[in-house]
Every structure is written in C-alpha cells, then in structure tokens.
C-alpha cells in the first residue's frame, strides 16, 4: 500500500486538520467531531446546507463548504457514512434560524444515518428537510430496489441549491430547486484500477491489465459490467448513450457537463474524454452551457472517470452562474 499517510486509523482526522490549516479563511472544524463548517457559521437567516458521506471522495464534501455552496460537510470513515451524532452536530452548528437542508447521496447507510440525525434535530426544534441524490444511470432503477446511487451529480446539487440559499431562498425553495437538479441530472462512471482503503490495506477489487469496469461506483463497489479496455472515445460513446437515453436529453436542450476524475486519472485524460463528450453533444444538437473538468467526486486513488450531464432551464442557469467561493469550487 503506497500512500502518503501516517496511520490508517486517523487518516480522516489528519486530513481534516490539514484542510482547516490550509483554508482558515473558509472553514473551521467542530471540536471533537469530523465536521467542517463555514468559518462564519451559522449564517443568520440563511438556509443552511449540510452534506457529507464517507471520506475518500475528496474534495467532496468538505471542499465545497463556503460561500454559495455548503455550510457543513460531515466526514465519515473512508467509504462509510458518518454517524447520526456527527451529522446532528453539523446541523446544530450551521442552523441560522432559516432551516437546514440535508443533501444525501442515495446509499442505504447515508440515508439512514442522515435521517436519524434529521429526526434528532427536529426533536430540538430545528427545521430540517432533505433531498436524496441518485444520478448514477449505471444502476437500473426498479421499484424493488433502493434505486440509484448518488455520485458526481451531487456537486451540481451543492452548487445550485447553495446559490439559491445564498440568494435568500426559503427552505422550501432551496429544497425545490435541489430536487429540480436531482430530476435533471444523470451520471455514469468507469474505472481502470481499484483503490485501497487505508484501513483495509488491499485493493477493493482485482482487475486484469487489459480490463476495465463499467458502471463503477465511487466506493470500490463493483460496476455493472467488466470488459476489455477500450479507447477513450468508445468509453465516452458507451457512457453517453446510457446517460442521454435516460432523462432523455434531446436536441435543443442546454446542459452543464462535468467530466470527473476518480483520483488516479490525470487531467490530460479527462480533457481527452471531454473532447468526445462535446463532439457527441454537438452532433445531437444539445448545447453545452458550462463545462467542469477535474476531480470533484473521487474514489481515493482509483483511475477512472465519470460523466455527468445536467439539463438546464433559466432558473438553473442563473443559479449555476452565481459566484461560489469554497476551497475546491470557485466561480467568479
């Protein structure tokens, strides 16, 4: 296990300390909890946004804490949802009297822990609402299952709901726009290599030198299909065909694009992927309004990428355009 760490037991704590030491102008840590909040939390009268999940997806979510996005990011153990008490502390620390929106990725553990925390906060008289992000089209949706996973599309929820809250929206309005994003966002990913959870010390899966995994999640959980490695354009063609068909995204639509690296894939390759994404959208008559290329929702050092499309209307466009100032997401 080749990692720049000291002790697998405390990677999350040391990471958060390193983060707060890097960005004191943006964030502080709640003493005794793995919770990062805005330096100026609670912001009086503003709806507060709380997200979080297992660690290992950096910069998600604590990297998005700041003006125009989240008020708190709760960091669980690597790939493990945080516990309700941690989330509860986050809610209490950021509630500015206008209520709190929980942005939850659709994993059984996350949903249960966040909902328990929400109940605890409501018991204390805090107004809490929640949304569940489920953008991953790799997973077949069926009434018999728990539905789709939440992956990189979550960052668009943070950005747009964050802008709405920053603009003074009520909890109801912020929740409504978050749900609009969720309804209009679709993602799918793939991986070339596994990653190693520090506490486990060995790869989450094994894969041949000439193989790749399609429909990969962001926790080293197996994808939906394993195939021989393909060219970048073929991979994009496959992911895009699933994504486009799902909503569906149709000619004339305007979209925001996110090409997200999973941690081990260099920017050069992400740009090569975006080339094809953009070509396909051109061919389909779908207009690209904004593109984001980089690492937004990672899976430790896994090599691979995901593609996210968000269908925009005027409201979403203006909220997407709003400035944001956080450690990992800045927009002027």
């Amino acid at each position: 296990m080749k990692k720049l760490i000291n002790n697998p037991e405390v990677v999350v704590e040391e990471m958060l300390e390193g983060m707060v030491r890097a960005f004191p102008q943006y964030v502080r840590k709640l003493e005794g909890y793995n919770v990062i909040v805005r330096a100026d939390a609670p912001v009086k009268g503003k709806v507060a946004l709380v997200s979080g999940g297992g660690s290992g997806h950096e910069p998600s979510h604590a990297g998005y804490v700041g003006k125009g996005m989240l008020d708190a990011g709760v960091a669980g153990a690597v790939f493990t949802s945080p516990t309700p008490d941690q989330i509860f502390e986050a809610i209490k620390a950021v509630d500015g009297g206008a209520g709190v929106l929980l942005i939850i990725k659709n994993y059984t553990g996350d949903v249960m822990n966040f909902e328990m925390a929400g109940d605890m906060a409501r018991d204390e008289g805090i107004e809490v609402a929640s949304v569940i992000v489920n953008d991953d089209v790799a997973v077949e949706n069926s009434t018999y299952t728990v539905g789709r996973r939440g992956i990189a599309g979550t960052v668009f929820v943070h950005k747009i709901a964050g802008a709405k809250a920053q603009a003074g929206g009520t909890l109801e309005e912020v929740k409504a726009v978050a749900e609009k994003v969720i309804k209009n966002v679709r993602s799918m990913g793939m991986a070339l290599t596994p990653c190693i959870v520090p506490a486990a010390g060995k790869p989450t899966f094994t894969i041949g030198d000439d193989e790749m995994e399609i429909g990969m999640g962001i926790h080293g959980e197996p994808g939906t299909m394993r195939t021989n490695i393909m060219k970048a354009d073929e991979i994009v063609d496959h992911l895009m065909s699933k994504i486009l068909a799902d909503l569906p995204f149709e000619s004339g639509a305007e979209v925001a694009v996110m090409v997200n690296g999973l941690g081990g894939t260099p920017l050069m390759e992400l740009f090569i992927l975006n080339r094809r994404v953009s070509q396909i959208l051109d061919e389909k008559g779908i207009k690209v309004y904004r593109t984001y290329v980089g690492e937004f929702m990672t899976s430790l050092e896994m090599a691979g990428a995901s593609i996210t499309l968000l269908k925009l209307d005027d409201e979403l466009k203006s909220l997407l355009d709003a400035p944001a100032d956080t450690p990992a997401f800045k927009q002027l």
């Binding site: 297992g54 669980g76 309700p84 008490d85 994993y107 553990g109 822990n113």
Partner: peptide, 12 residues
C-alpha cells in the same frame, strides 16, 4: 453502535 459504526450496519 449507532454513534461509532456509520454505514448501513450501524443504524440497523
């Protein structure tokens, strides 16, 4: 268990 495990098994 609820306050130390996290994930799915903690709350369950």
């Amino acid at each position: 268990l609820i306050s130390t495990v996290g994930g799915a098994s903690g709350p369950l």
